[in-house]
Design a binder for these strands. Structure first.
Lengths: 115, 115
DNA sequence: CGGCATCCCTAGCGATACTG
DNA sequence: CAGTATCGCTAGGGATGCCG
């Protein structure tokens, strides 16, 4: 999902810019998992049930490049790599919480609120 | 709130459910444009600079099916169709605003000419 | 353990032309 | 005006295998 130059208005729109960062099937779920603390690759792979290592690797790398999370490697055997949110990443919790709030109001099994 | 495995299930996690709704390149931008009031197909096509009629049509239809927006047709010549947000759609403004807020904090170098 | 490399496949999007 | 009908592309993602 990429905005081209023809979408100039949208390119400078903060909403669209944020959407770019959190788009992608797994991105938000990774960030949410990291809100509870530092995680290793394997932990994320297991908690994000069904994700392929390639996809997880790609998402982690792009999030690292965007400064949302921090990748910390340890020179050990077996190797250890820990992922944690940066301040820029932790700040996304606000977005996530508003999405959670919305999801609870409108999208859960309880249909009484749905119209 | 603690994040357990159940929260990662797409069927249960409100965050994932919300992400499903607002995913797609244009979805959020359509909703954003509708927050300012009722819009016609042509208006959206022009304000969403670069969108193809096919894509706009698809997005509008799926958003209608999800109950986020309302499609109202008028038996006139030339035909008129008006799109507006439902309550479920207007409620997404909270998510959009938190995204806008985040985008302004972290993602915009130039804050002078933003939407 | 934490990944790349490789191959493949599909949803989503774009462009254009056409129609009720 | 408000869409469909085609066609084609490609980025994202899944599956599997291998390696330091």
């Amino acid at each position: 999902m990429e905005l081209t130059k023809t979408h100039l208005d949208d390119a400078i729109c903060p909403v669209a810019r944020t959407a770019e960062i959190i788009s992608g099937k797994w991105t938000l779920l990774i960030i949410r998992d990291l809100t509870s603390g530092v995680k290793r690759f394997n932990q994320l792979e297991r908690s994000l049930c069904g994700i392929s290592p390639k996809t997880l690797s790609e998402r982690l790398r792009s999030l690292e490049e965007e400064g949302v999370l921090l990748r910390r490697t340890f020179a050990e055997v077996p190797p250890r790599v820990e992922y944690s949110l940066t301040e820029k990443g932790r700040d996304l919790v606000g977005v996530i919480e508003s999405m959670r709030s919305y999801g609870k109001r409108w999208l859960c099994d309880d249909q009484t609120n749905q119209k």
